[in-house]
Design a protein around this nucleic acid. Structure first.
Length: 1031
RNA sequence: GGGCGAUUAGCUCAGUUGGUUAGAGCGCUACGUUGACAUCGUAGAGGUCACAGAUUCGAAUUCUGUAUCGCCCA
């Protein structure tokens, strides 16, 4: 058998994928003979290709899925993608502008949607291919898309149900308006950035002031243009008590403050006192004027606006008065609601000033701002202009500033829905890991804020509501009776509601349960029009676990697989997605969607920033796979998935010419070409646009963090290669475990422990720990010790057969345990192992099956677990280590064999005697004496293993380097003395001796004794060596 | 402003209920390639566990505060 000494992942992976696919290894069916286990994939957005974060997310899911499949569950991993309304439409629109200089309105709804479908097809294909190449064992025959017919049906039925339950209502609400995309975006899609701005002070004249009253009021704003929509100026209803309250808080803070803070607070208190003196009387006067109904003249618009008393005005800040623009500021909106103020919308959907802005109509916000300030200045109504840092809300989708905007939106009432999702997590029906994320989930739902679900987009599930509005009472009654007549008996398919608006007019809203219902036409003939808006993407994602299984239709799959077992996702969508899946599942099915949720860390780049394509630091999993292989990608990700903290992963460009890795910096990650510092070749990056730049070969962005994992794959491959090379004459045989030599029983015991730890670890999402356990076991125990010991045994005809049996079993078990993390290399080796040892196992050989992917997961054999054996073996390992240390300090060449004498107890002798030959293999040692009577050599290098009561002596006759030996012993002596001093101090501390538990004290005493003995022995050795050099 | 988390070797991270000399990988140093593996082996150097207090016989670990960083919410 010839096996190459490198695992050719590129060649193997494609073949293995095909074999699995042909054998339908990942296909799940309803199978009453097995217990079901299902996970739904968090559907990736079709907006763009997958990055390393997806790589992590899907690797973790696949590890669980693969283990469960091997454990015999009927395992379904449901794949699919998400249409990601705003994000995807925004990308396509941006390209439209860039490439054709067209807007969506130039194209029209149908044509734009068609373009987005084309985009979706392209990226869905790419994404699914990425997942497949990573080895994700999804049931690809069931692949879904949040906008496909089945999901659409689920969305429609759910929406109708909520509408019928009166949980969907229409409201004018202040929304975050993206005036570039011309849609509302949710709070979660808004980022606040700090920007330098100004604080402009204006004066509004008072109309008919009474004697003694001021003739103008000062207000200040960071957004002057909004004054066009002002409908009031507010002053605090009780400025004195408000100031008292502020002062009280400051005093309380002062009492607890440190020196530095207290100075600051004192200054604030002084300012407050000053304000009380100079401004309070005026604020009280203004409050009284407000009570008396005094009005102000809004400049530029020449509109009378009231002076109102409202707690939103802060007497401790600025002039103490605040302008109120209810239609363009969230806080002012609240004031407007409280004081029943008119709400004047001054903005067009595209962000320009509308007719309400009078002379300013048609200007952009920016232009209007400039002009308003200039005009007020002209009128001598402009006061100070301060520099100030302001929070500027930016749309995460378009990167344009957000305008608060009053718009008609559909809302889902969250009250009872949210409560159900709270209860289910609070009662641990749904468990969230790590547990700390529970709080955020519960707090967010606890606010029970209604969910605005309208999106002014074309890409998504169009809202199934037809409406007629602005009807007077009589017309309403007439139309309503017609609606009732049309609906008639079909009230399970159509539903309506009537709303009265502020101005006493009515609107009628009809919701239809199914797509293309013939009733549509009937309503349209009555003048009903379908709402052009689409639903928030999360509405369809919220149904994902059950819509993918066929809901609302009854399906055998739904019956069998639901609820799913676990959801593995990232923390930023706990509220947006996880919470909504819980409440929607409860609403639609009365069931939880999943029993557990695991939140995994995020991957950051070397600078601690999130990876993203727009920064240029994003890593494509495919690039990592091409360079390091899919197993290395997966193992490399799994081993960093702890539950504590996000992971930093420094990234590099790979020079396509010389393969050197070049660290990414803020500078070089945003340039179109980079010159390799090693070979001076120039390569292009994702930013290359000009033909000249693109002509250079592309440099992939990867991370050297995957080298460790790649090396591990190689180590496993080569260990397997060794095993396979020594199985040529393998014959299956049963093994009597009790009569096996120590090293075999040690391996079996370790396998039992590792199997238990890994099984429990994967079940509790401890990926990093499992990876480490497997890495250490495979490398440091199986390879470094078991295989090394097996070498001489395989040359011994008497031992060869059993050795082959145990070794084949060890490799077999290791492959199974590693398979969920490293599916390709393990499947590849599995095929070779099946050729060499078709039947294998301890104690009795069995048929392992054609695929490790479908092989049985190991069960920790408690009978093989033997602590005494493991302890004994570690004695052996320590002796090996001692010999190696002495050799290294003496620079004895590895190929030289050195005589070694081991002084030990009778018990240790019994253990070590049968293993003497292995010291040769592992430490190049020839054991000349072993047992209680073993003596030092004439030219001796000793090392005492006091805790084991073993002295290791190496004969240096042929190699003695006195200086080196003296140095080694002196260093040892120094270390011992330091430790002894520490222990002595500890033990001379009376309260330690008195108060620490007895066993701790006893252990300290014992170890001190041992150290002293060792020091004496080293002292003796030193003396002998010194006298020898003198003689 | 509120909440959550982090700070351990040059880098990236582990570190169970407080108890021998705080670990790993990469990087670094020295030595070593005819048979599984140089994507390797053996050994070594490298740490005031962010800082300041408190609790305790004993603190990387528990508590309080400070600083810095990250995320979420307002």
């Amino acid at each position: 058998m010839t096996i190459p000494n490198r695992f050719d992942h590129a060649d193997a992976a494609a073949k293995i994928l095909k074999i699995w696919d042909d054998a339908q290894c990942a296909h799940a069916t309803v199978n009453p003979d097995r217990e079901p286990f299902m996970i739904v994939i968090p559907p990736p957005n079709v907006t763009g290709a997958l990055h390393l974060g997806h790589g992590l997310n899907n690797t973790l899911q696949d590890i669980v899925i693969r283990m469960k499949r091997m454990q015999g569950f009927e395992t379904l991993w449901m794949p699919g993608t998400d249409h990601a309304g705003i994000a995807t439409q925004a990308v396509v629109e941006r390209r439209l502008v860039e490439q054709e200089n067209k807007t969506r309105h130039d194209l029209g709804r149908e044509a734009l949607v068609q373009r987005i479908w084309a985009w979706k097809d392209q990226y869905e294909k790419r994404i699914l291919n990425q997942l497949k190449r990573m080895g994700a064992s999804c049931d690809w025959q069931r692949t879904r898309f949040t906008l496909d017919d089945q999901c659409a049906k689920a969305v429609r039925v759910t929406f109708f149900d909520l509408f019928t339950k009166q949980l969907i209502y229409r409201g004018k609400r202040l929304v975050n308006w993206d005036s570039h995309l011309e849609t509302a975006v949710s709070n979660d899609e808004v980022n606040n950035v700090k920007k330098k701005g100004h604080f402009w002070h204006f004066y509004y004249p008072v109309i008919d002031p009474k004697p003694g009253e001021p003739n103008r009021v000062e207000i200040a704003t960071t957004r002057p243009e909004t004054m066009l929509g002002d409908t009031a100026v507010a002053v605090h209803p009780n400025p004195e008590s408000a100031l008292d309250k502020v002062e009280k808080e400051l005093q309380a803070k002062l009492a607890e403050a440190n020196e530095k803070e207290s100075a600051e607070i004192k200054t604030q208190l002084e300012q407050l006192a000053e304000r009380r003196k100079t401004m309070l009387p005026q604020l009280i006067q203004l409050r009284d004027m407000a009570a008396d109904g005094r009005k102000l003249m809004l400049p530029l618009m020449n509109r009378e606006i009231p002076l109102v008393a409202d707690r939103w005005a802060k007497p401790e800040l600025g002039s103490g008065c605040v302008k109120i623009t209810p239609a363009h500021d969230p806080n002012d909106y609240e004031v407007g609601m409280r004081a029943d103020l008119p709400m004047i919308n001054i903005m067009n959907p595209n962000g320009t000033i509308n007719a309400e802005g009078g002379a300013y109509a048609g200007m952009t916000m920016k232009e209007a701002r400039k002009k308003v300030v200039a005009d007020l200045d002209e009128l001598e109504l402009l006061g100070d202009v301060e520099d100030r840092e302001v929070d500027l809300p930016i749309s995460d989708r378009s990167k344009f500033p957000i305008e608060p905007y009053l718009a008609d939106q559909w809302f889902v009432k969250m009250d009872t829905l949210a409560q159900s999702a709270i209860d289910l997590v609070a009662d641990e029906e749904v468990k969230i890991f790590p547990e700390r994320y529970r709080k955020g989930y519960l707090d967010w739902l606890g606010e029970k804020r209604d969910w605005p679900v309208s999106r002014q987009l074309w890409w998504g599930h169009q809202i199934p509501i037809w409406s007629v509005s602005r009807l007077d009472a009589a017309t309403k009654d007439e139309l309503e009776s017609k609606v009732v007549a049309i609906i008639g008996q079909a009230n399970d398919m159509a539903s309506y509601r009537v709303d009265e608006s502020d101005d006493g007019l009515f609107g009628i809203f009809v919701c239809l349960r199914t797509e293309d219902d013939p009733l549509e036409k009937d309503f349209e003939e009555l003048g009903f029009q379908r709402d052009p808006d689409v639903l928030d993407t999360w509405f369809s994602s919220a149904l994902w676990p059950h819509s993918t299984l066929g809901w609302p239709d009854a399906s055998a799959e739904l019956e069998y697989f639901y609820p799913t077992a676990t959801l593995i996702t990232s923390r930023d969508i706990i509220t947006l997605w996880v919470a909504r899946m819980v409440l929607m599942s409860w609403n639609n099915l009365g069931k939880i969607p999943f029993r557990e949720v695991f939140i995994h860390p995020k991957i950051l780049d070397g600078l601690g920033e999130t990876m993203s394509k727009s920064k240029g630091n994003g890593v494509d999993p495919i690039d990592v796979i091409d360079k390091f292989g899919p197993d290395a990608l997966r193992f490399g990700l799994a081993r960093i998935a702890t539950d504590t903290q996000d992971v930093r992963m420094p990234v590099q460009y790979e020079c396509p010419a010389c393969e050197k890795l070049i660290d990414q910096t803020k500078k070089n990650r945003s340039v179109p070409t980079v010159q390799c510092p090693a070979c001076k070749a120039v390569f292009s990056t994702q930013w290359a646009e000009s033909e000249a730049d693109k002509a250079h070969p592309r440099g992939a962005v990867v991370s050297e963090r995957f080298e460790t994992a790649r090396n591990f794959v190689n180590k496993l491959w080569n260990a397997a290669r060794f095993v396979l090379m020594n199985l040529e004459d393998y014959q299956p045989q049963s093994v009597d475990v009790d009569t096996l030599p120590l090293e075999d029983r040690w391996l079996l015991s370790r396998l039992s422990t590792v199997t238990r730890e890994v099984t429990e670890g994967i079940e509790s999402y401890k990926y990093a720990e499992c990876s480490r356990i497997l890495y250490d076991f495979a490398w440091d125990e199986f390879c470094s010790f078991y295989v090394e010991i097996a070498k001489p045994r395989l040359n011994d005809e008497k031992l060869r057969g059993t050795t082959q049996a145990v070794m084949a079993h060890g490799l077999d078990q290791l492959l199974r345990l590693l398979h969920p993390t490293m599916p390709f290399v393990t499947e590849s080796i599995w095929a070779f192992l099946n050729d060499a040892a078709a039947s294998r196992g301890v104690p009795a050989p069995t048929d392992p099956g054609p695929f490790v992917m479908k092989a049985a997961w190991p069960i920790a054999n408690a009978q093989h677990n033997d602590e005494a054996i493991e302890h004994q073996f570690s004695e052996f390992q320590e002796v090996v280590g001692a010999i190696r240390k002495i050799r290294a300090s003496q620079s004895i060449p590895p190929r030289e064999t050195v005589p070694v004498a081991i002084r030990c107890s009778e018990a240790s002798l019994a253990l070590l005697q049968p293993m003497t030959t292995y010291f040769g293999q592992l430490a190049g040692a020839d054991i000349t004496a072993i047992g209680p009577d073993a003596k030092p050599f004439e030219t001796d290098a000793p090392l005492a293993l006091t805790s084991l009561d073993i002295d290791v002596h190496v004969d240096l006759e042929k190699f003695i380097d006195v200086e080196a030996e003296l140095a080694r012993l002196q260093k040892l002596q120094g270390q011992l003395e330091k430790q002894i001093t520490g222990k002595q101090q500890k033990l001379s501390n009376e309260s330690f001796v008195a108060r620490a538990p007895e066993d701790v004290v006893a252990r300290e005493r014992e170890s001190l004794d041992e150290l002293v003995r060792q020091l004496q022995s080293v002292g003796g050795d030193l003396e002998r060596l010194e006298s020898k050099t003198k003689s």
